[in-house]
Design a protein around this nucleic acid. Structure first.
Lengths: 227, 227
DNA sequence: GCAAAAGTGTTGGCACTACACCCATGA
DNA sequence: TCATGGGTGTAGTGCCAACACTTTTGC
């Protein structure tokens, strides 16, 4: 067993990310246009190959920093994809992640592997390389599930924000309108928001109170929900 | 790029399974005692290395057939684990699955890699090899989550079963008692059970009606729930 | 007749939905 | 004064949890 045993088969491992952002009241996904074969010129999810000595999380964080200059928070694993033929180069295992990113933080720019990068609107997506359509679907489902059980998306807002802005964010993520009074009731009842005492400035209507997220209260209770 | 490029790093990929079963009213996990280094003699989750040419699902199904003679249904992916040092041999990626198995279907037997195999009771577990304690925790959480959203565990019952047996199964999985009247109301309201017209035989008390699971009704509605 | 499990309804609380109007502000 | 978003309460509905007794059967 120690001499004749060549060791297990080895596989290239890719890490890919479904990065969501909100812009102009709509949910967006970050896509890159491939600058190399296979699928040259096709849109794809950002990602790359895992290197020896790094964990999956480290790998995807490195790739996203290199390829898109972003550091998503939260960043959760979706799972591993291994469908035969998903990569024409051969058997490549892909571990996918889903994350949220401020759209303003990302300055789309070309790269060695990425000829172009852009935020695509959910519901108006181009055809994607590899099995990325399937991965994106899994990411979207995960985002919706997570939104219903945790206060996701607060990182996308400024430090102090109005309840109107919070509601608009959730409406963009969920893709449907929410009832204002019910939303406010639940948001305030969650006990995760603290009134900063500040109000909006320079708006052409009544100034809204600004709140901040109470990270400590959140940590002490595990899971909270806004809607 | 075609000549100087040695290609991406390659990794051994392991597939491991958290297999749950119910026996004597308690939730059990299938463990094997390792018959090889590393962790010789330690208890571990069943699993093995992925081979070239197979998907992750195929790999874990093959390993479980070889190592334990079982074919779990359902079998769902938990995700990939890559913590540094999880395998002392070096960086090994592990993709974990969670599945349900009839305890009677598994005849524990030794194997080249497994010196022994046994059903361990949740809550009275031995120390585990690798990062399997963490994987098991993820599997348990997934089982509970799945149980709350889908009629999981029906495969563990015989073709025709009583509502009492169904309730006992769910109590074992969830690890807590359930209210009989509420459970029956929801189970029958789910429209996933059909009265077979049969009753129990040879019991020292009133004979229960026996039901069967209506797979067609389940397929037509996607997700149903019993409790 | 007794042990053991089957079978059966009602109630109160809570969470969710739907819904419409006045208020403050700047242009 | 008007346009724009901020801010507020109530009523109806449905789900869920809690709860105890009678029935059937075999021994």
């Amino acid at each position: 067993m120690s001499a004749a045993w060549a060791g297990p088969d080895r596989f290239p491992v890719a890490v890919d990310a479904v990065l969501f952002g909100v812009s102009a009241g709509a949910l967006k996904v970050l896509l890159i246009r491939r600058g190399a074969e296979p699928f040259l010129g096709r849109w794809a999810l950002p990602g790359g190959f895992l290197r020896a000595g790094e964990t999956l999380e480290q790998g995807v964080v490195r790739e996203l920093a290199e390829e898109a200059g972003v550091r998503p928070d939260p960043l959760v694993q979706l799972g591993a994809f291994s469908a035969p033929g998903r990569d024409p180069r051969g058997p490549v295992l892909s571990v996918a992640f889903m994350g949220l990113v401020r759209v303003e933080d990302h300055v789309p720019h070309a790269d060695t592997d990425a000829a172009d990068a852009a935020w695509a609107t959910m519901g108006a997506l181009p055809p994607l390389a590899f099995d990325h359509a399937e991965v994106l679907k899994a990411g979207h489902e995960r985002l919706l599930a997570l939104t219903r059980s945790e206060p996701v998306g607060l990182n996308l807002l400024p430090e102090a924000f109005s309840l109107g802005a919070l509601q608009a964010l959730y409406e963009a993520i969920l893709g449907r309108p929410l009832d204002k009074r019910n939303f406010r009731r639940k948001a305030l009842a969650s006990n995760l928001l603290r009134d900063t005492g500040l109000t909006q400035l320079g708006v052409a209507h009544r100034a809204a109170r600004l709140y901040r997220f109470d990270a400590e209260a959140f940590a002490n209770r595990g899971a909270g929900i806004f809607l």
